[in-house]
Design a protein around this nucleic acid. Structure first.
Length: 569
RNA sequence: CGGGACGUAGCGCAGUUUGGUAGCGCGCAGCGUUCGGGACGCUGAGGUCGCGGGUUCAAAUCCCGCCGUCCCGACCA
């Protein structure tokens, strides 16, 4: 492709609206242009890179036994009401009404389409398993689109859906997709990690997120320094402590603690560490009183709690709840819980004893609260927010925090959607059973942005070769030198005939402009043909990733460029 | 949606405080000189100053309303 004919409008200056590197550089290098908040046009260079990511994804999906289909984007609302997601997604859905007044929506993901499709056409257990996927635009009316392509309202996603006869089959299908996802991201050249995650609104149980490491990433995750545990902060659990020794427990003693409704105030008044106190946080789960116990230096992870009670809605106590149910806000302790309250404790509570906790009386606490002598715990669960310095639950190693961009998310759905959608098959015993489903999302456009985020420098993009718009850029540095023109044409044609994707900068512009644009666009290998080299019988090669340059003889320029390309990341 | 900022030529910005003929740099077009890291000279094109209303002899500038974009927070591939 000749750059003189390519619609690749590069910008000399940073667009004012772009803050993060990928956004700034994808705009400047002429890959995308904005149309509205979170809505972009993809230009030829962007289309090429995105198509590479799509093809790698298709390749791995096909190799894993998944089959490509294409579902509509405009969808009827009814199935979404059946699964409850019409309301659950709420404002996040792009809704529209057709001329007959029927409610429609733009697909944010498509379980509601694919499950009925399979149910209607594969009625027997003999037809299973099956895995269908598509690469299609998805629509989510995000509260706040931002960071260029990283958080948009319209994005290209590969979504796959597996259908199995039983849970064992579902897990096997899941494992196959898990492995395929690892390969896709490896092939795209992303520095990535796979973490245990929170299922969010998709729901279900076991799920993993595939994350590209990035400082500007919106997602926090933890990783064990020994490399054996990775988890999203919303799902991460610290190692449970050894149970505290239960001998010589202190007796319960009421303390006068004026004006100490917070842990900080209490700890400083008594001169103790926050972790010696027991925090009792009150929630309402559909009318049911729920007390959650965590050490005073810990925060309750509400997403974990919500998951535990799902689908029952959970909310923290408001002032009126404390009054109506007889609790003193700021001074609640577990020893005063009525029988009908559910008392949950985080595993870390097992590691403590002789707790200082609320006396359920204004300006008073107790010391020496012990379980089960003084209070009961109905269930121990993982309920605390993870934090830097926590121990890995696998081997006790130190956990570190990292930031990332979520590029893929896969779920074991079980019958969460097949049941409400009545998507079932006839099993061997002649009885209709709902499919055991899995769903698997991969953000194609987001992978492109994540790669740009990971691979750039001050001058521009540095594409991994697998997803670069072109593998080699040939730069004609001096147009007025006849031999240089002829040699550059020859090298361009030579590379093209060898099946290499080549961008040929044959424009009239000054050399400096071309070099700057080449670095900006970021093809892995640059071949510079100019007077200087021609006179010495050579051309210059440059590896964009490292900036490394070398001179090679004119005659073998194409081979040398290919060798360099082979060594490129 | 809550908090903050911004909207003037394709891009980056000044001008708004104190109302008085709409500017600069880059880019773009033509001619000439240059020609290996964003060249130089001359000439030129390009603007409903986000939109609507108001105040005024006069509004980019003051007032009211709306729209749009970005940043910080709650949601996600």
């Amino acid at each position: 492709m000749r750059l003189s004919h390519l619609f690749a409008p590069t910008l000399r200056e940073d667009p004012a609206e772009a803050e993060v590197a990928s956004h700034r550089l994808l705009l400047r290098a002429g890959f995308i242009r904005q149309v509205a908040a979170g809505v972009y046009t993809t230009l030829p260079l962007g289309v090429r890179s995105m198509r590479k990511i799509e093809e790698i994804t298709r390749d791995e999906m096909d190799a894993s036994g998944a089959q490509e289909i294409r579902m509509p984007i405009v969808l009827p609302a009814e199935p979404w009401k059946a699964t409850g997601r019409f309301d659950l997604y709420g404002e996040l859905l792009f809704k529209l009404t057709d001329r007959h007044g029927r409610q429609m929506l733009l697909g944010p993901t498509e379980e509601e389409v694919v499950a009925p499709l399979v149910a209607a056409n594969l009625p027997s257990y003999r037809d299973l398993p099956v895995n269908l996927y598509q690469v299609e635009w998805k629509y989510r009316d995000e509260f706040r689109p931002r960071f260029g392509l990283l958080r948009v309202r319209e994005f290209l996603m590969k979504d796959a859906y597996s259908f199995d006869r039983d849970e064992e089959g579902m897990r096997a299908s899941y494992d196959v997709m898990y492995a395929a996802y690892e390969r896709i991201l490896d092939r795209c050249g992303l520095d990535h990690v796979t973490v245990e995650a929170d299922p969010g609104q998709i729901g279900g149980g076991v799920n993993h997120e595939f994350m590209a490491r990035a400082e500007i990433g919106e997602d926090l995750f933890v990783e064990c320094s020994n490399g054996d545990y990775f988890a999203d902060v919303e799902a991460a659990r610290p190692m449970a402590p050894e149970p505290a020794d239960q001998t010589d427990l202190l007796p319960v003693e009421v303390l006068d603690t004026p004006d100490t409704p917070t842990i900080d105030a209490l700890a400083s008044l008594l001169g103790v560490e926050a972790r010696e106190t027991l925090k009792c946080v009150m929630f309402d789960a559909g009318g049911q009183t729920v007390a959650v116990l965590v050490p005073g230096d810990r925060e309750v992870a509400e997403p974990k709690l919500e998951r535990l009670f799902f689908p029952t809605p959970l909310r923290p106590f408001e002032d009126v709840d404390f009054v109506e149910r007889g609790f003193v806000k700021g001074y609640v302790g577990p020893q005063v819980m009525p029988d009908d309250a559910i008392v949950l404790a985080d595993h870390t509570v097992r590691g403590g004893r002789d707790w200082i906790t609320g006396a359920n009386e204004r300006d008073h606490h107790v010391r020496g609260a012990n379980m089960p002598r003084d209070f009961r715990v109905d269930r121990f669960e993982d309920l605390v927010e993870i934090r830097e310095g926590d121990r890995c639950p696998i081997d006790g190693g130190a956990l570190r925090m990292g930031r990332s961009i979520v590029v893929g998310h896969i779920f074991q759905l079980h019958t969460k959607y097949s049941e409400p959608l009545k998507a079932s098959f006839i099993d061997e015993d002649g009885i209709a059973k709902p499919f055991q489903m899995g769903c698997y999302g991969m953000g194609i456009s987001r992978i492109m942005a994540a790669a740009a985020e990971q691979r750039h420098d001050d001058a521009g993009l540095r594409w991994p070769k697998a997803i670069a718009p072109f593998q080699v850029e040939v730069i004609l540095a001096t147009r007025d030198h006849e031999r240089a023109v002829a040699e550059s044409e020859r090298i361009y044609a030579d590379l093209v005939s060898r099946g290499v994707e080549v961008l040929f900068d044959d424009r009239e512009d000054a050399a400096g402009v071309k070099f700057a644009d080449a670095d900006l666009i970021g093809c892995p290998v640059q071949v510079v043909v100019g007077t200087r080299g021609i006179q010495a019988g050579s051309v210059d090669l440059k590896l964009r990733a490292t900036g490394e340059r070398s001179q090679v003889p004119l005659a073998g320029a194409a081979e040398a460029a290919l060798d360099l390309l082979a060594s490129a990341p």
